[in-house]
């Protein structure tokens, strides 16, 4: 099992009031899974995704990612886990400005200590797989939204992660471009053997996943 989550809660303290973003979510993700996380806005989808990706820690519950209990990891070990096991794709792309496409894709390899030449080779190859071999040295501002998200997908996959977590990856794209990006994500994810967790509030998109998990008010409803 790649990810085992048991009774995860995430509580935000805001002054006197507390916000319970997650109220006991259990979930298992196996390698090769394709899972859609659906639910209305504010239901806790992003919060759950951050937990599954080791960006955040649960307030309670047990979370094991790639065989490692998150509670037992310090911040450096958690960073290493994100670097080796996880690939993130965000709604707003999150590419570094003033940085070429190939360098954006190579960024996770920097924190893995891969030498510069190898980094560039691997990043360029990955960009080729998402159809951007001709855009290596373009900056994000010189790319369309769809192209930017494809760069982000290449960045998520360049390390060969076990789980790819995509938080509304088509949210900032028009539907045709969104479709294309989604296809690419599914196809590349499948090719690499990584599990894919897709956060969306689009039921049509969710229907393409092997499995759907529906969140409402911080609880799994189906």
């Amino acid at each position: 099992m790649l990810v085992e989550a048991e009774e995860l809660t995430r509580v935000y303290a805001m002054g006197d009031t507390v916000v319970e973003a997650l109220r006991g979510v259990s979930l298992r993700i196996a390698s090769g899974d394709y899972l859609a996380l659906v639910g209305p806005s504010g239901s806790g989808k992003s919060t759950l995704m951050h937990l599954l990706g080791g960006l955040d820690r649960p307030s309670s519950g047990r979370l094991v990612i790639d065989g490692q209990d998150v509670a037992s990891l310090n911040r450096n070990q958690l960073a290493r886990l994100r670097n080796t096991a996880i690939g993130f794709v965000f709604q707003s792309f999150h590419l570094l400005p003033r940085t070429s496409a190939v360098e954006n894709v190579a960024l996770p390899l920097v924190y893995r200590g891969v030498p510069a030449r190898t980094r560039r080779q691997r990043a360029a190859a990955m960009l080729g797989q998402v159809g951007l071999a001709h855009r290596l040295d373009h900056r994000p501002s010189q790319l369309s939204g769809g192209e930017q998200q494809r760069v982000a997908i290449a960045r998520a996959l360049v390390t060969g992660p076990s789980v790819v977590l995509a938080d509304e990856p088509t949210g900032n794209l028009d539907s045709a471009t969104g479709q294309a990006v989604l296809h690419l994500l599914e196809q590349q994810g499948a090719a690499s053997g990584a599990a894919l967790v897709l956060v969306t509030h689009d039921h049509e998109v969710a229907g393409r996943a092997h499995r759907q998990v529906m969140l409402r008010d911080g609880l799994v409803v189906s």
């Binding site: 450096n76 960073a79 080796t84 960024l107 996770p108 390390t159």
Partner: peptide, 15 residues
């Protein structure tokens, strides 16, 4: 945002 992204792809606090 850059810091957040770098951390998401594996940067440690000390990096």
């Amino acid at each position: 945002r850059e810091i957040g992204l770098r951390k998401a792809v594996g940067a440690r606090p000390r990096d």
